[in-house]
Design a protein around this nucleic acid. Structure first.
Length: 573
DNA sequence: GCCGTTTTCGGCCCGACTGTTTTCAGTCG
């Protein structure tokens, strides 16, 4: 059983947490965290690299020691060091770190002084008043802690990007009308277009920050003010979303935007680079000695460091700085590159609109083509089509196309991949289609080997064109099923099969690391909305966001092509 | 523990806000 990168990263993160509580050398702790990030963000698995005989210490943030530890984890599934640390320091303490306001120092203190190991221990110490005997725990701190314990949940509360946008909109409008406000920008992970957003980071430029802060504190959707200083504040909205606002002078706009957009590892890397060049970067600008020499715009800041402008979606410290230095940043795909949508449903199965309604929405988007991909018969809950019904739909599409003088509907199906790797409809009808979209909709819990073989067998069918939502994950709801993605991609490449990036905000499947891998391997991709109604075509934006974070360019994505070129790409090798 | 146009040691990003230990540590982004 291959060990996943996320598991290896998690070993190192757990070690870092516990070492931090033990008050170890902070740089050693950072080394573990940096290594974890490298591993988590790697497009290839560590097990695969080791099998290839690659020296892992050539990877960034991985030295000789950690390379050996990775190898140990891959070979044995375990790391003795973690066990040793856990024998000294209870692993449950890292749960306490997740409580806002509790950092390593306080967790350590509570453990040493009152033997507090768990959230429950902490609650009891507060209720009995014992906690006041610990230095540094005064009335306000304890009251805030109690509130946070009560609202604490083990589920990470991250909001899907699209919903975050809707929450942010009225707040941004409100801030814009505050006196003295010039610009208002949504930064943070939202601006980097992450799948989910933990909190909203809002940057405001204004000459007088105090007045703006005052105005923001009167927004009527605020349920709690966590902190409110003269230039920075943190509030919780009624919906539970945390909002961090930073007000800064207009001349610092670019530097502040870089700072507030992050990611943190990207910023750290930028600041290190600045140091090397004899500069200092903070949210106010670029400084040489104490002289302000730049920072009005982001472009200017990057330029001072000898870098091309880096799009927010790339700012994760996964190679973008090097690419910006040597001029090899990707020309990221954008919404306007998209010429059609290759995964749409109608009311023939579980969609809500007719074929011509879907086509007319797509026409409004300026698309040249869409395809209709209703479900196949096995998916009975959706009234999946059997062979005869599909033939009937094909006739309808032919009729539509005969009359349409602009948009073309391609004939297709979202056909189920059965457990034995066969497809849910016979070849005799599949061959009547322009192409197929093939998907796994049941038996998610097969072993990695079986699941991979199932899909590989399906790919052997000459009518298999596109693999839909390749991992089956649903964000915050369902884990991806186990597959050997590297193997699937290699097989797709050999056969000329296309992988779908499903743009549904719940799916975003492939993830950004898969996208980057596919690009590196030369596997063709398609971005599709899986639209079940006319409005769903708007999900294309989410797919584009994801593609951009995966470094994709228009040429990597088949539905940026004209219909003529697309038809060629849909042909199997 | 990693890293190197300051290479095998001595560094390691930078600043705001809070509460409390009245001068700053702890936490967070």
């Amino acid at each position: 059983m291959a060990v996943h990168n996320t598991e290896i990263a998690s070993f190192f993160e757990r070690i870092a947490d516990l070492l931090e509580i033990e008050d170890e050398n902070p740089f050693r702790i950072r080394a573990y965290r940096n290594a974890a990030r490298t591993i988590r963000g790697s497009t290839v698995s560590m097990s695969y690299l080791l099998k290839q005989g690659k020296d892992l210490s050539t990877l960034p943030n991985i030295g000789k020691d950690l390379a050996e530890k990775i190898q140990l984890i891959v070979e044995t599934g375990d790391l003795p060091l973690l066990g040793e640390i856990e024998a000294r320091t209870p692993p449950t303490l890292s749960d306490l770190l997740k409580v806002q306001g509790l950092g390593p120092k306080r967790v350590r203190l509570l453990y040493k002084e009152l033997d507090i190991n768990t959230l429950e221990d902490l609650r009891r110490a507060i209720q009995s008043g014992k906690i006041y005997t610990v230095k540094g725990f005064g009335e306000k701190t304890v009251k805030a802690l109690m509130e946070r314990i009560n609202s604490y949940s083990t589920e990470e509360k991250r909001t899907k990007w699209l919903l975050a946008r809707d929450i942010a909109r009225p707040l941004l409008e409100y801030i814009k009308q505050c006196e003295g406000v010039r610009k208002v920008m949504l930064a943070g992970s939202f601006r980097r277009c992450k799948e989910t957003v933990g909190d909203l980071d809002i940057l405001v430029t204004a000459k007088e920050s105090k007045k703006v802060m005052e105005c923001i504190s009167h927004y009527d959707e605020i349920s709690n003010v966590v902190s409110m200083g003269s230039t920075r504040s943190t509030v919780i909205l009624d919906c539970g979303m945390q909002v961090d606002v930073r007000v800064i002078a207009p001349e610092s706009y670019g530097a502040a935007l870089v700072y507030f957009t992050g990611s943190k590892p990207h910023n750290i890397e930028l600041r290190k680079l600045a140091q090397k060049l004899g500069y200092k970067i903070n949210e106010y600008g670029v400084f040489k000695q104490d002289k302000h020499i730049g920072g009005k715009t982001e472009e200017e800041l990057y330029k001072k460091l000898g870098l091309n402008y880096i799009e927010p979606e790339l700012r994760e410290n996964t190679g973008e700085l090097a690419a910006a230095r040597n001029g090899s940043l990707p020309q990221l795909i954008s919404l306007k590159d998209i010429r059609g949508d290759l995964h749409c449903h109608t009311n023939a199965t579980d969609g809500h609109c007719t074929l011509s309604e879907m086509a007319s929405s797509a026409r409004e988007k300026g698309y040249e083509y869409i395809s209709i991909n209703d479900h196949s018969k096995r998916l009975t809950v959706t009234h999946g089509l059997d062979e005869a019904q599909l033939l009937e739909q094909i006739r309808q599409i032919d009729k539509f196309n005969a009359k349409s003088d602009d948009i073309v509907i391609l004939k297709s199906i979202e056909v189920d991949i059965l457990e034995d790797g066969s497809l849910d409809l016979s070849d005799s009808v599949l061959k009547e289609l322009d192409f197929t979209v093939c998907a796994v909709h049941y038996k998610f819990n097969l072993s990695q080997q079986k699941q991979t073989e199932r899909i590989l067998r399906a790919m052997d069918n000459p009518y298999f064109t596109i693999l839909a939502h390749p991992t089956g994950r649903l964000i915050n709801q369902r884990e991806a099923y186990e597959i050997d993605m590297q193997k699937l991609m290699m097989a797709a490449k050999q056969r000329g099969i296309i992988l779908e990036l499903n743009a549904q905000p719940d799916r975003l499947d492939l993830n950004e690391i898969h996208c980057k891998t596919a690009k590196e391997l030369g596997v063709k991709l398609v971005i599709s909305t899986d639209a079940h109604s006319q409005n769903d075509f708007d999900y294309m934006l989410c797919g584009i966001n994801q593609a951009r974070r995966g470094w994709l360019e228009a040429e990597n994505v088949v539905n940026t092509r004209s219909l003529k070129e697309l038809r060629k790409l849909l042909k199997r090798k």
